[in-house]
């Protein structure tokens, strides 16, 4: 059964290389996107923590700022 699955009637090399190429690309795209997201959220967290109390109140008035500040580790996904 496992041998059949690997060999795929002689087409194993073609089938498996297609699937591996697809999921390798998925993995790389996910990693790059996540890295960019972490980088930007860290920048945001750093800047947000440096704000004084008046600026924090002003910044928190914008709902999205509040969300991002709450999830400064937005990369929790």
């Amino acid at each position: 059964m496992i041998k059949e699955l690997i060999l795929m009637n002689g087409y194993g090399l073609f089938v498996w290389s297609s699937f591996i190429f697809t999921f390798f690309n998925f993995f790389v795209l996910f990693l790059i996107t996540k890295k960019q997201l972490i980088k930007e959220s860290n920048k945001f967290a750093k800047k947000f923590s440096k704000l004084n109390s008046t600026q924090t109140v002003l910044a928190e008035k914008q709902p999205l700022n509040k969300i991002f500040a709450k999830n400064t580790i937005v990369h929790k996904i």
């Binding site: 996107t33 960019q36 930007e40 945001f44 800047k47 704000l51 914008q62 700022n65 991002f68």
Partner: peptide, 11 residues
Amino acid sequence: TELIKLKNKGL
């Protein structure tokens, strides 16, 4: 990521 980039500029 794009939204956070914008918000960074806003801060």
